[in-house]
Design a protein around this nucleic acid. Structure first.
Lengths: 193, 193
DNA sequence: TTTGAACTTTACACTATGTAAAGTTGACAC
DNA sequence: GTGTCAACTTTACATAGTGTAAAGTTCAAA
């Protein structure tokens, strides 16, 4: 897991666990307690709460192997397949990062570092959208009258964590129903009829 | 404006103005200073920051006449017209409330009262979505295989403030481009081909 | 001239982050 | 054994913002 320091890892796992638990207000002292270390020990490893959250997202990425998941969608040959594969890959990943993502998003206004870190991740996700849209365009399957840039922004918005939150968390959709519906909308909106 | 108390109104307008200005961290003391009253005077009129924000959204609703705007979409006869009219009405209203909305959304995890108030507004918006979807279904124009409940949730998600934020604030889309694209996606996703 | 409401001023309690520094512990070196 | 170093704990404190409390000011109306 590329984490050789056991205390650091205990803290990261504690942070992950607590945020995953849906606790909306996780304090540094909560994390310390869960990790079984003193609050000050946390500051020995992470200069600030924002840094800890950012490190936690990176840690999750490694443990859950995001890149591998998303890379798989690149194997698809046609644009249509690629679009679906990407929605499945990213859409399936959202629940894994939602806990920490929520905390990061909450921290975004106020902490510039957290904002940049989260935006960076979202821009990486946008590249996947761009690749899918470009593959569609290459096949001549992109809906007529659409610029690839705009279609990329649209798809990126459709796949946002907030939309997942709206449907799965607030409206109680199942993960499967979410994936199915997003694919349906994406097909309808981006693929030439 | 139904606001007979001048000091109270000064505070509400100050709050509105500051949040509209994009300031992400507006403090009670900032609002007091802008309103030209002492910080304590604010607490004389509003028990807490959450209450002030909630009162501000209501104030904006009255000044901007949301209900009137949204009601106009009800005049449309066909489902297709109604869908477009509703997207224009609500989509056009989002920029007016975005400043305060952002502050409310930021406050949502942490303050149950703020959460309930904002969710209430969003559920009211969902009713408009439901009416548009029902009108489409009545005309036999709803895309096949769609339950009206699910379609309502989908449209509601598509029209979320967060999606407007993604496109207009983060990706620099014009308001017109936003409206046009949301209408396009909605047509593609919800109307029988 | 008094009274009362609205507002100001001053002070303080509380919570969470983050800084600072002295004390403890245990492994490893010699 | 003794010393030393790093990692960790403990205690204390600075800071920022919300919200409470209460005494003082002002001004208009009875």
């Amino acid at each position: 897991m590329s984490e050789e320091n056991p205390t650091r890892e205990k803290i990261l796992r504690a942070c992950w666990e607590l945020l995953e638990g849906g606790d909306t207000k996780v304090r540094m002292s909560d994390i310390a307690k869960t990790a079984g270390v003193s609050r000050q020990a946390v500051y020995l490893h992470f200069p600030s709460r924002a840094d800890l959250l950012i490190a936690t997202t990176r840690f999750i990425d490694e443990v859950e192997k995001v890149d591998d998941r998303l890379a798989r969608s690149r194997a698809a040959t046609t644009g249509r397949e690629r679009l679906e594969a990407y929605i499945e890959a990213w859409g399936g990943y959202i629940p894994r990062i939602y806990g920490v993502g929520r905390a990061m998003m909450a921290m975004m206004d106020g902490d510039e570092e957290a904002r940049a870190a989260w935006n960076g991740r979202m821009m990486a996700m946008r590249h996947g959208c761009e690749a899918a849209i470009n593959a569609l365009a290459r096949d001549g399957d992109l809906a007529p009258g659409l610029e690839t840039d705009d279609a990329t922004d649209s798809l990126w918005t459709l796949l946002s964590v907030r939309n997942w939150e709206h449907l799965v968390q607030e409206r109680d959709w199942s993960q499967d129903a979410y994936i199915t519906e997003i694919k349906r909308i994406a097909r309808a909106a981006f693929i030439r009829p």
